[in-house]
Every structure is written in structure tokens, then in C-alpha cells.
Design a binder for these strands. Structure first.
Lengths: 184, 184
DNA sequence: ACCTGAACACCGTTCAAGT
DNA sequence: ACCTGAACACCGTTCAAGT
């Protein structure tokens, strides 16, 4: 696993960037792209891909790093402009929407690979949820003592709704159920 | 896809049973067993496995058919002996426990392969949940108008808790959250 | 220091050939 | 009617050989 920027030889950095770019492009349409295929499209040897990314999840995280950061950065402005529970609902919706398009990231976040992911994406997302819950606790809208991992696990239901016309309604119903469960 | 019992040639039935038995055995310890490996251990050609089971999910369903039936059959006695919400909690716990050991079945139940599964396992499980919710509705303990698929999707959180010592506590916390969300 | 790409040990799936 | 098992088109991953 090479770091994103620091101290990479020029060709190494170029390869790394190409891999991420190709992967991002490929993942936009479907989740099942082989790492070999990504390497080939990026014009690098498969070993090069593995030199930069220890496994599929590591590549996923890198591909979506900025999107996750943008999402997490939304928490503060949302909390500034809305009551905690409203901000929470809005952010949860944004998270669910993001996870539905970003193939495999949701599982990487909730899944057993949590360790690898920790500092990169899991951490920030957990931090975002924590901030929302704390704000709700402070105003008494959210029941105190909630575990962030519990909430994250529940939220998984949101990005597992089958896609389609009825999916939106189911998403809204689930959101209500989840909010009810965490409300004071 | 051959049916389980009817009108199978003797050797065909023998092969089918062997495959299911070997698969059940293998799945007891781990979820990642290849279909080829199952066929080999069962002493049949890989084509034979595919003749009997169109895909992995079909085999999974068959392997766990009886366990699912037993689970579903528990609903009536539970409802007879406990208040609806208590019965619901107990059955949800049993379901979660079953899904944690029965590798891959949970995803097959909630996942996108829902169609294939419908009549076999998804149907009965949904029926069981429906019965529990209806009983709770009748006594006013459960809020009316709940969607079974919504509840099933929420329950998914229960069998996604990472295994380990803290897993039990997280399971209990999640159960409370879910019950709170469906209570009147 | 980094890259290449053949090679390894697998997958799931198919299908000609057999009985 | 059913079975076999080689064969196909892939996987993820490794590692000698190169620059």
C-alpha cells in the first residue's frame, strides 16, 4: 500500500492516479469489475495495482475518499441551519443515496473489513453520525447513550432497498422507522 | 432444477440428496465453499450439481429448507404463550441466531435474488413476520400498517453484527431499537 | 524503487460424450 | 433421463525478471 501523495516516484504516482481514475469510472456503472480488468484498462501490470492497493476495499476507499469527505463536511452546515433531528434525517438521506451509487462501499463500511477501512472512511462517517447524535442529545430530541455502530448498522437497511419505483417509498418508510428508534 | 422428491430416477435422487447433505455439512463451518468442491466431495460431476440446482442460492435454500420451516412453525406456539411483542422479540432473536450460522441465507432472503427465493423461504419468513405484526396490531402493541419487507430489512442489522464478545450486547441494543421503531 | 506480465490455483458454468 | 469431467473464460494474487 503506497500513500496517496508523498514521496512517490513520478511514474509510480502516475500509475496510482491512473488506477484510481479508471476504477472510479468503471464503478460508476457497475460493481463487478475485476481488479485485473482495471489494471489492464489503466495500462499497468496487475502487480502494480497490488503494490498500490492491498485489496479491493483499499481501492474502493481511495476511489470514494473525496466523496466521503464532502459528505462528512456537510454535517456542520446542516446542523447550523436545521434542528438536529431534521439535519440528521437530511444527512442520513444523503448517506443512503451515496451508498446506493457507490457500489460495495456500504458493505466495506459496515462489513467485517472494518479494520482496514477505519481511518480512511469508517472513521469520518462514524464521526459525522456521532456529531448528529450529540446535537440531538443536547436538545433532548435524541435519546442519550446511543452507540454509533448500532445506528450505522440500522442505516444499512436504507441502501439495501431494492432499486426501482417503489424503492423511494420504502426508503422513506425505513427512514421514519429508524428515526423513531433513535428519537427520545 | 429438479424437484426434491417427485419422479426422480433412483440415481438422480441419490445424487441430489448427497449434494444437499455435503453442502449442509460444509456450510456448517464456513460460507465460502465452491460449488465445484461440493460436487467433488459429493462424488458427482459438476454438471450434475447444476442439473439439480440452478445456482448457489437454490442450493442454499434447499439446504436450509427444514430449519426455516421449523423456525416458522415456532410462531404459533410463541404467540399462544406470550404477549405479541414478547413473542416477536423471541422469534426475531431466533431468526437472527439462525441467520448468523446459516451462511449467506440472510443475504439470499433480503437480497436482490428475492424472486428466486420467494416461494421457498422468503415467503414463509415473510408470513411469519406478518403473523407477529398482526397479532401486535390486534392488541394495540404494534403500530398498524407496517410493511413486512421494511421490518425484514431492519432485522438484517441483527445478523450483521460482527461476531465476538461484544456482539451479544450490540444485538440486544439493536433489538431494542428495532422493537421501539415498530411499537405503537 | 518500481513495473511487467506470465503463472498459479482457483472460480462458476457449459456441453460433448457416454450409460 | 441422467451423469461425467474436460474445457472455457474468467478470478485474485504472486513473483521472477526486467529497467
Amino acid at each position: 500500500m503506497t500513500p496517496p501523495d508523498q514521496a512517490l516516484r513520478a511514474d509510480a504516482k502516475r500509475n496510482r492516479d491512473r488506477i484510481v481514475q479508471v476504477a472510479r469510472e468503471a464503478l460508476r456503472t457497475t460493481g463487478d469489475v475485476s481488479l485485473n480488468a482495471i489494471a489492464k484498462t489503466a495500462g499497468v501490470g496487475s502487480g502494480t495495482l497490488y503494490r498500490h492497493f492491498a485489496n479491493r476495499d483499499a481501492l474502493l476507499i481511495e476511489v470514494y475518499r473525496e466523496e466521503i469527505r464532502d459528505l462528512v463536511d456537510q454535517v456542520a452546515p446542516l446542523l447550523a441551519e436545521h434542528p438536529p433531528l431534521v439535519a440528521t434525517r437530511m444527512w442520513f438521506e444523503a448517506l443512503a443515496e451515496a451508498m446506493k451509487t457507490k457500489q460495495g462501499l456500504g458493505d466495506a463500511l459496515t462489513g467485517s473489513t472494518k479494520q482496514t477501512v477505519t481511518s480512511e472512511s469508517y472513521g469520518p462517517v462514524v464521526g459525522a453520525i456521532r456529531a448528529l447524535l450529540d446535537a440531538g442529545e443536547a436538545t433532548g430530541e435524541v435519546r442519550p447513550g446511543l452507540d454509533v455502530d448500532d445506528v450505522l448498522l440500522l442505516l444499512g437497511a436504507l441502501w439495501r432497498v431494492p432499486p426501482g419505483a417503489e424503492g423511494d417509498e420504502q426508503g422513506e418508510r425505513l427512514m421514519s422507522l429508524i428515526l423513531r428508534s433513535i428519537a427520545a
